[in-house]
Design a protein around this nucleic acid. Structure first.
Lengths: 203, 203
DNA sequence: CGTTTTACTATACAACCGTATAACAGTGGG
DNA sequence: CCCACTGTTATACGGTTGTATAGTAAAACG
């Protein structure tokens, strides 16, 4: 009664464009994955993190699993975008290494998300499809950069092999740093990567 | 009535030594992790896989999480044992590589277990402790093998750096093979590892 | 053979899981 | 200004979660 004056009656919820809402739910999903791994990826957690009610996941994505796939696509998309945005072909080993680690600035939380997703990919067909698509693009780009760089140096390499080595190495280093950050700093990881790349490319 | 003859009255359950029962529950846990990742690691799944009732996990381990830690310890213990059992110091790059991949014969299922556990380590303090302990021992042993091998070749290296590189590379290669087995065969993984090791050790 | 111990089963429990459903409310078109 | 549309909430649902509890049964000990 007391507040019953006709004063614009504060809206009971925020109504925003579907795309924007989807983006927020994806962001919340990533936050949940970072905090609690795949087990933290629950409807309750996500919607609480996003500040919405539980119904929106179904409404905007159809299912929780579809949201997971969308989140994965979003993350990988950002990585690929960063790779595309990177200027030209790397002119030095250092630039090549920086390119490989361009996304790791996103901190430990971000790495935990990858780890959580990787564990799920192996047992989740929908994620598997999403992964395959993106990984192929990723390796393609890394291989191209390596190929261009090697050509500039007058060296010939099987760029796909080298790309696989470097990607695996970086993933492995991330893994270690992510699991126990006292073992490895970003600088040391870059250093080890540089060292390996130098050796492999000059062999 | 018909079967009411006093014929030793088949026992209603199998009563075995606690150690043996724990081992079986751990084996069942690993099977569940392989099949469904960390989300497949549930009391119901594990006990059904082990052929027991649900009460035994609490009885023998105290909690599900303690069982998970025990399973991780068991897996890592097997890896370390295999490493110890390996003859002497590797005499060639090939032997070194074989040593690194000695456990991967345990197939894709086995790799899925690692992946599931890795994703959990980052967010599970109990697993984190277990991991740190075992990883230190693992790297120690790999570094020692590399050091001994390098000495035999008359090369001097920072064996810990090289160990970190190799372990990361192998983990990364496992990762890829595990996520999408169409990308990488064991032979090719070994080959890439051999190539990297050769390059790094001769630099 | 009777007693004690404890491995084991069965069940109960509250909390949480993902999704389906219905009602509500903000927005744009007429 | 009213209506249709749909983004949003609230709730209900059956099923599953991990653990605590109570009772059963098998083996060990005297």
């Amino acid at each position: 009664m007391t507040t019953m004056t006709k004063k614009a009656a504060a809206p009971k919820f925020e109504r925003i464009a579907p795309d924007e809402r989807r983006a927020r739910l994806i962001a919340a999903s990533i936050a949940c994955l970072a905090k609690g791994g795949i087990q933290g990826f629950t409807v309750d957690n996500i919607c609480h993190e996003a500040g919405t009610s539980r119904g929106l996941i179904t409404h905007h994505f159809g299912s929780k699993n579809a949201l997971l796939a969308a989140a994965y696509a979003s993350i990988y998309g950002k990585v690929l975008d960063n790779l595309d945005r990177a200027e030209t072909t790397p002119q030095s080993i250092d630039e090549l290494v920086d390119m490989m680690f361009a996304d790791s600035f996103l901190s430990r939380d971000y790495l935990n998300v990858w780890l959580a997703l990787w564990g799920e990919i192996a047992v989740n067909p929908v994620l598997q499809v999403e992964h395959r698509k993106n990984y192929a693009l990723y390796r393609e780009r890394i291989a191209r950069a390596i190929s261009a760089f090697a050509r500039g140096q007058g060296v010939t390499v099987d760029s796909y092999d080298v790309a696989t080595i470097v990607i695996s190495l970086v993933d492995g280093l991330w893994l270690e740093q992510c699991i126990d950050q006292s073992l490895l700093s970003l600088d040391r990881a870059k250093d080890l990567c540089r060292r390996t790349l130098t050796a492999v490319l000059s062999a």
